[in-house]
Amino acid sequence: MANNTAIEQKKPSSLMVVKKKPEQGARNLTLLGVGAILIAIVATSLELWIYRETGDIYLDRSRPGFLPDAEEVEEDTEADSGYIYPENGALDASELDDYLRELKKVEESLNKIQNPYGSNALSNESLGIEAAKEQE
């Protein structure tokens, strides 16, 4: 008798729990979705901030407008001789000849760019801010 009473007393509370579950589940799912979106926004914003602050954005040539041109890729491929001086072995004069020859090629490729980051490109005349002064 006492047990039946206990079971009957339990039933209403378990019924009440069953009633609450769908609402609570829907709310939790919504919270999960909103939370996931917020975390994604925060993480992406932080990542982009770091990308800009560290300066990697300026070294990255994969962004739109800065992709290398086709002829530029060909130039890079031709310029790379693939030479590496071996770090093991005795010092050999003929190997140093090869070293000097390859280093000369690199030096010449660097000298192809005359006056790198010269001041002329940002001068008033180049930008059209001021007319070039006529020489007397």
Partner: peptide
């Protein structure tokens, strides 16, 4: 243009250090 120049110079300098200067000094 400056970005292109940087890529060109940067790869050349990297090559000088990696393929010429460091291995010679190690040897």
């Amino acid at each position: 243009a400056d970005s292109r120049t940087r890529a060109y110079l940067g790869s050349a300098y990297e090559s000088v250090v990696r393929d010429f200067i460091t291995p010679l000094n190690l040897r």
